[in-house]
Design a protein around this nucleic acid. Structure first.
Length: 404
RNA sequence: GGAGGGAUACCCAAGAGGCUAAAGGGGGCAGACUGUAAAUCUGUUAGCGACGCUUUCGAAGGUUCGAAUCCUUCUCCCUCCA
């Protein structure tokens, strides 16, 4: 192992870097940068920009974070940029409408929450944090115009979402044109070697590459990771769509959400979210196709892997057991919320809404009418109920309370 | 600056004075089924101690026995022309 040439080492790094990546632009530059880094014994500067809009990180974000972690393990430097300044504009990427602008307090709070979660994946000691207000805030109008002059409206309009919005008659704020330029300027400020992003970031990443050149630096390489589909299997995972699994979700919540993904997503999740070797994933895929492996069991394993990563193995097993109890055995879990009552004879819809088991009394009535309510495991169709100590009320499959 | 067009529930989208708490689709929730919070099918999807009442069709006024629908003003968006 001592006699590996620099080219060989670079190739080995490249192989790891390419795993899971959708596109590396340009690939040759990546390889050259790796070689140079090895030769000069100087780590590459890997950049990732974060828009502090949603404070909660979900598994979709971790796809890119995992890749960053890989770079760290290969000895490179990770630079995270909290877009505290750009967050005030809102990234137009993949949006059919203009984003809300954030207040300063929101941004600070979100950035703080971000950091807490990010280090579940990244190595804190090898990560550098920046706020892009550091350099964007101090620019004056001349600097801004100079920056704006580096790109043309026509090229800006090439961007998929701008074009689409324009055609569909949806508004595009002029300030939104500045977003890719500012993100690109972040790369200039950092002199980034590589910038990571989802495939939706392609345009922004390439603008960064262009700007580095314009400002007389070595252009960055753009590395794009796939966008993870949410639990619905159709749209990308996002908090606003509600199809996400958050890294801060409780183990049981994570388990359930993982079990709710569509079967066709199982292998993809394994590939992008776990460290299960590719060969093993391939085997599972074949077994499922052949009917030898129940997709449910594959999902159980997936859920355990995910919870182990973000919590620990013990909690993962607990969550699994609870899930099996509730769904496979149709039983009542042990640790359900308890409600202390003084009144014994209650109107159930009101009771359920008062204790946040349903949102409104109307919904409560609906649930009863639909046969979704069970008392001590028996279907309950009346609206009035006489409560007793230790009585268990269930609404739907996963909402339980115990009366004490 | 001028001329047209538009805003409907969580989202998309019908409706053009009473039959509209508002079609249809998506999403959500529930039931059945099972292999699971998968797939499929079915139901349901403003609130209220409720065969009634209250709020809801960009906002505010007005016409009318009666308005999402007609009128006025305002806000926001789009298109074309400058």
């Amino acid at each position: 192992m001592d006699k590996l040439t620099i080219k060989d080492q670079a190739r080995m790094q490249m192989e790891q870097i390419e795993r899971g990546a959708v596109e590396i632009l340009p690939r040759d530059d990546m390889l050259k940068k790796l070689e140079k880094s090895l030769r000069d014994q100087k780590p590459l500067r890997i950049k990732l920009g974060l828009d502090p809009t949603a404070p909660d990180i979900h598994l979709g974000h971790t796809v890119v974070l995992n890749k960053l972690r890989q770079f760290q393990d290969l000895g490179h430097e990770v630079h995270l940029i909290i877009g505290d300044f750009t967050g005030r504009i809102g990234d137009p990427s993949g949006k059919s409408e203009t984003r809300k602008q954030l207040s300063e307090e929101e941004i600070i709070e979100n950035a703080r929450t971000y950091q807490e979660q990010i280090f579940k994946v990244l190595d804190k000691d090898k990560t550098m944090m920046h706020f892009n207000s550091e350099w964007l805030m101090t620019m004056n109008m001349i600097d801004v115009l100079k920056l704006a002059g580096k790109y043309t409206v026509a090229r800006m309009m090439e961007r998929d979402d701008f074009e689409k919005r324009y055609k569909e008659g949806l508004p595009i704020g002029v300030h939104e044109f500045m977003y890719p330029l500012m993100q690109g300027f972040d790369s200039v400020a950092l002199q980034a070697d590589v910038e990571l992003g989802g495939t939706d970031q392609k345009f922004n990443l390439l603008v960064g590459r262009h700007l580095l050149k314009e400002y007389g630096f070595e252009p960055q390489v753009a590395l794009m990771m796939p966008i993870l589909e949410g639990t619905d299997g159709v749209q990308k995972m996002s908090k606003s769509l509600g199809n996400y699994i958050g890294v801060n979700d409780e183990p049981y919540e994570m388990f359930g959400k993982t079990m709710s993904i569509t079967d066709s997503l199982i292998c993809r999740y394994f590939e992008l979210l776990t460290r299960v070797p590719a060969a093993e994933i391939e085997t599972m895929k074949n077994q499922m196709a052949a009917g030898e492996l129940n997709p449910r069991d594959a999902k159980i394993r997936l859920a355990v892997e995910i919870i182990t990563t973000f919590h620990n193995a013990e909690l993962a097993v607990q969550a699994m057991n609870r899930f099996k109890l509730v769904y496979s055995d149709r039983d009542i879990p042990a640790d359900i919320p308890e409600i202390k009552v003084s009144e014994k004879d209650v109107w159930l819809p009101k009771f359920l809404s008062e204790h946040n088991i349903v949102d409104t009394t109307s919904e409560g009535r609906r649930m009863i009418k639909q046969g979704a309510v069970k008392v001590n495991g028996e279907k309950y169709v009346l609206e009035d109920v006489h409560l007793e100590t230790n009585m268990v009320i269930q609404v739907g499959k996963r909402r339980f309370v115990r009366i004490i």
